[in-house]
Amino acid sequence: MKNTTMRWLAVAVALISVAVSTPAQAAPAQPPPRRLNAVAYYGTLDVIARETLGIRARFTTIEGRPVVGLPVQFVTTGERWFMCEATTDFNGFAECRNGPIPPPISLANLLVNGYDAIFEGNRWFRPVMAHNNIGVG
């Protein structure tokens, strides 16, 4: 019986030494999300019709290549009211054309503070925001 215990102990020590010396296989690491550049362009506001004209933003990689298919939200600065959403095209532009402004949005706030174009990020790209002003058109 003593020999059997010694054999089991030797086998356990051998298995532990093999397990400790064998490197663990890690899952392939996914690269971290990349940074983007964002530029918002000056827009105009038709006060009588309560709609924005030509509010747009461009999203590119750090290297300057346009990014296609990003969902971009356009919101008022300060109040953060949602105005519209657009997807970037093949040139990296997202644009809201002739977007009606819902009643809770203050036209004065929009004219004074402008708007923000926001991409909330995904597994490939980090969140980014761009800001610009709106004038009466």
Rank of each mutant, 00 (worst) to 15 (best):
M1C: 05
N3L: 15
T4D: 07
T4S: 02
T5S: 05
M6W: 13
R7D: 10
L9D: 01
A10C: 13
V11N: 05
A12S: 09
V13M: 09
L15K: 10
I16W: 13
S17H: 10
S17A: 15
S17P: 06
V18Y: 06
A19I: 10
V20C: 12
S21Q: 13
T22Q: 07
T22E: 12
Q25H: 14
A26T: 09
A27G: 07
A27Y: 12
P31S: 13
P31G: 04
P31Q: 13
P32H: 06
P32E: 14
R34P: 07
R34L: 14
R34K: 15
R35N: 15
R35K: 14
R35A: 15
N37T: 14
A38I: 15
A40I: 04
L45K: 06
L45T: 08
V47N: 07
I48H: 13
I48P: 07
A49I: 08
A49G: 11
T52D: 01
L53A: 11
G54D: 04
G54W: 03
R58I: 07
R58S: 04
R58Q: 13
T60V: 05
G64M: 02
G64P: 05
R65F: 09
R65T: 11
R65D: 10
P66L: 09
V67C: 02
V68A: 08
V68Q: 14
V68C: 14
L70D: 00
L70R: 07
P71W: 08
Q73E: 12
Q73V: 10
F74C: 03
G78A: 05
R80T: 07
C84N: 00
E85L: 04
F90W: 11
F90Y: 10
F90P: 01
F90R: 13
F93D: 02
F93G: 01
C96P: 04
N98L: 09
N98K: 01
P100T: 14
P103W: 10
P104K: 06
P104Q: 09
I105P: 00
S106V: 04
S106N: 10
L107W: 00
A108G: 03
L110V: 03
L111C: 01
V112C: 02
N113Y: 15
N113T: 06
Y115P: 00
Y115D: 00
D116G: 03
D116I: 04
E120T: 10
E120K: 09
E120V: 15
N122W: 06
R123Q: 11
F125P: 06
F125I: 08
P127Q: 07
V128F: 12
M129C: 06
H131D: 01
H131F: 07
N132Y: 00
N133D: 12
G135M: 11
V136C: 01
G137L: 08
